[in-house]
Design a protein around this nucleic acid. Structure first.
Length: 420
DNA sequence: TCTGGGGTCCTAGGACCC
DNA sequence: TCTGGGGTCCTAGGACCC
């Protein structure tokens, strides 16, 4: 038996938690670059504002909506507090994303009571609203969570297994198929052609037939909807397979110099991430592209990958390789919107294969240099020390014009309460 | 002016091996 | 006259999640 616990309108709820003026107002949290909506308060949802809707369109249509830039430092800190509270109450926990976790409810006599306890404690200790869904598979738990959110009369907790088979069928019949975990736009369209539009129809479809017309992934979803659990709780996070650092630019980049600054900056960040996870990478990819939304602009996109001479997490090596890759990728005369760096084929640093042509002394010195850089940047802030080719102009840097303070992670931003 | 970032898994087809 | 079969690995593209 599984539970899924998630924070309602997570980023919007956190923003409103620290700034009470936002409560009860339509609030949208924007993606990086203040580009599109990634979270909405209940009031913003009621206005019909959709996920990933462009911020400039929201402003035009609903001038009263309050916009906040996303503040991941704040959200990540609040997330870890939520996860800690849950961990103390449930037997086993799988952190699934920044705002949700699965847990095992096997052997719990009164599941609903435990779920309510989790909900109440997070509300009381942190001031954040959560919903809990319960089901015999992860997919059914997710469906319960959807009901818990949609129907406030259940008090934020719903357990589909507490219903009779007939009640379950009736409930599922009233839910669109694309509310199922793993079914999005494309699959919904495909299923529609097969005559499947609600959850009950998907559950009752023949899994083999589904595999023939779609994929084993959807077949598994059908099995899960039927209550045969195919996706286990993952208590140990699987080792990561790749690291990506990419950003859209605040304004279009139109020359090689800007692009190189951006790519070197992202490559440095990727190397830092590798080191923080004690991993090394064998392959490096660089990609750049223009904006597909600017129909009148000439379009260009390209990716280049190289195998590094040795698996590495050395900033200087990775930055230089990324800059070299960019040279073979870059074409003049385009308005570039985005660039990114991917580290691929990751292995633990401890297993790194030595190269007979490398000087051991040199390797040790470089490791020391990178470690010093990490220590300085951890103490004095990101990019205090960085490679020179990452540049100073930063015309491409992302926009965050409505950023809230880092209330819980910076001394200077801490909230002060005044007695009256 | 303005449309996110980071990740996973699956599938199909080609290259290559024995 | 007659030109294999089974396996792996890699890549690109698609779909999905939050």
């Amino acid at each position: 038996m599984f539970g899924i616990i998630d924070v309602n309108n997570c980023y919007a709820s956190i923003e409103a938690l620290f700034d009470p003026r936002l409560r009860g107002k339509p609030l949208v949290v924007a993606s990086n670059n203040d580009g599109c909506a990634v979270a909405r308060s209940a009031e913003a949802k009621a206005l019909g504002i959709k996920m990933t809707e462009p911020v400039h369109e929201i402003r035009e249509r609903h001038p009263q909506v309050i916009i906040r830039s996303s503040n991941y430092e704040l959200y990540a800190d609040m997330s870890s507090r939520v996860m800690r509270i849950i961990d103390e109450l449930v037997p086993e926990q799988e952190i699934y994303s920044i705002d949700e976790c699965f847990c095992s409810l096997r052997g719990i006599a009164d599941r609903a009571a435990l779920a309510l306890q989790v909900r109440d404690r997070i509300r009381l200790w942190l001031g954040l609203p959560v919903c809990v869904g319960i089901g015999s598979s992860k997919t059914r738990a997710k469906l319960s969570n959807f009901i818990a959110k949609k129907r406030p009369q259940y008090g934020g907790v719903f357990d589909i297994e507490a219903l009779s088979p007939d009640q379950q069928s009736e409930l599922m019949e009233g839910i669109d198929v694309d509310e199922v975990w793993g079914v999005a736009e494309r699959t919904r369209t495909k299923l529609e052609r097969l005559g499947i539009t609600n959850v009950r129809q998907l559950r009752d479809a023949d899994p083999e037939w589904i595999r023939l017309h779609s994929s084993v992934v959807l077949q598994r979803t059908v099995e899960e909807l039927r209550g045969r659990s195919c996706l286990a709780l993952e208590l140990v996070p699987a080792p990561r397979k790749q690291i990506v650092v990419s950003r859209s630019f605040g304004k279009a980049a139109t020359n090689f110099q800007s692009m190189r600054e951006a790519v070197v900056t992202y490559a440095s960040r990727a190397a830092e991430k590798l080191r923080s996870e004690q991993m090394v990478a064998r392959y490096l990819s660089v990609f750049i592209h223009t904006s597909p939304f600017r129909a009148n602009d000439a379009q260009y996109s390209a990716t280049r990958t190289i195998k590094l001479p040795n698996s590495t997490n050395d900033t200087m090596v990775i930055a230089a390789a990324a800059a070299a890759l960019l040279e073979s990728t870059y074409r003049d005369g385009y308005r570039y919107a985005k660039a990114g760096v991917m580290m691929i084929d990751l292995t633990p640093q401890a297993h790194r294969q030595a190269d007979m042509f490398e000087s051991p002394g040199n390797i040790a010195r470089r490791a020391k240099l990178n470690a010093v850089m990490d220590r300085i940047n951890n103490t004095y802030g990101r990019e205090t020390l960085r490679v020179a080719s990452s540049g100073r102009s930063r015309g491409w840097a992302m926009k965050r014009e409505h950023l809230s303070p880092r209330y819980t992670t910076r001394w200077s931003d801490i909230v002060v309460a005044h007695a009256r």
